[in-house]
């Protein structure tokens, strides 16, 4: 369990990082917190020729919370995002979901942007980016561009970004008015990757009737997906909604896989249960935010 030989660069600026990535070509990989990449290297499942360590690159470590949303820099660790009250105020899903990412030791090193760049459909933050309708900023030698979540996630551990590129931040839009969120997951052991997880956003109209209900799941399907469950519950006063109907609908929309820890059927069951639970909790929060 020792990595194959690799080159190492620790640039101080983004331009320098992109320059090294360009020079080294396909074999180069960005190293952020290393919590996903280094185990792959140690097991020789990945053998990059060069690691471009971005940990010393200036200007990538800020969390900017504004009325539109929260912009999380590439070097922000999960632990910092978890503790950021301003970010949680703008988009409560951030703290809710990061609390379920691994254990404190891993959250202290692993970056939120790194987990999105890693594009693991079992990662909490991939689902949160999708559910909030977020995007990432990708820097390439040609400049910066925003890439929406739908265009970013291509497959398990695969994104649309190729060639020399660094994801410099992820942007999570603010929670809309009269809306609430919830996040819940089941894992075999506390802190493990979830067997199934769900995030939910519920929006009410001024009469406290449900106007939108959306969910996204983790460890279900190959890429993050947002499911609009509004039709099952639309127009119902929030205190009489039958969330089970939304759960039942969700179960028909997902296409989970079987793995060592859960059958596809069991995951589908959990999708229903978690949909009900998170939608009900999100609705309760939305009620509190609806005058």
């Amino acid at each position: 369990m020792k990595p194959a030989p690799f080159g190492y660069a620790d640039p101080r600026t983004l331009a320098e990082a992109l320059e090294v990535l360009g020079r080294e070509g396909e074999g180069a990989k960005v190293l952020a917190g290393g919590q996903s990449l280094l185990p792959l290297l140690s097991m020789r499942l990945a053998a990059p020729t060069t690691l471009v360590d971005i940990n010393r690159v200036a200007g990538l470590d800020s969390i900017e919370s504004g009325p539109d949303g929260v912009r999380v820099g590439a070097l922000v660790r999960h632990a910092r995002l978890l503790d950021d009250a301003a970010a949680a105020g703008v988009q409560p899903l951030l703290a809710r979901a990061t609390a379920s990412v691994a254990h404190p030791a891993i959250r202290n090193r692993g970056t939120t942007v790194g987990s999105i760049a890693h594009a693991d459909p079992s990662g909490e933050m991939t689902a949160v980016l999708a559910l909030t309708g977020g995007s990432v900023t990708v820097a390439t030698p040609a400049g910066r561009s925003a890439v929406g979540w739908q265009d970013f996630f291509v497959g398990p551990l695969e994104t649309s970004v190729h060639g020399p590129a660094v994801v410099v931040d992820a942007f999570f839009p603010a929670l809309a008015q009269r809306s609430g969120t919830a996040f819940a997951e089941l894992s075999r052991r506390r802190g493990d990757y979830a067997v199934c997880g769900a995030g939910a956003v519920v929006t009410l109209d001024a009469d406290r009737r449900v106007s939108a209900a959306r969910t996204a799941y983790i460890s279900v399907g190959l890429v993050p997906q947002v499911h609009d469950l509004t039709e099952a519950v639309a127009g119902r006063p929030v205190d009489t909604v039958d969330w089970a109907a939304a759960g039942a609908l969700a179960r028909t929309l997902v296409d989970p896989d079987t793995d060592l820890h859960a059958s596809a059927d069991y995951r589908r069951l959990l999708v229903g249960v978690l949909t009900e639970r998170t939608l009900a909790a999100a609705a309760l929060e939305a009620t509190g935010r609806t005058p």
């Binding site: 097991m43 075999r188 052991r189 506390r190 802190g191 493990d192 990757y193 060592l260 820890h261």
Partner: peptide, 16 residues
């Protein structure tokens, strides 16, 4: 052996 690592061979943590 499909679960030859501590990621997939589940030993209980203190929390379990």
């Amino acid at each position: 052996l499909q679960n030859a690592s501590f990621m997939d061979f589940l030993m209980p943590y203190a929390s379990e």
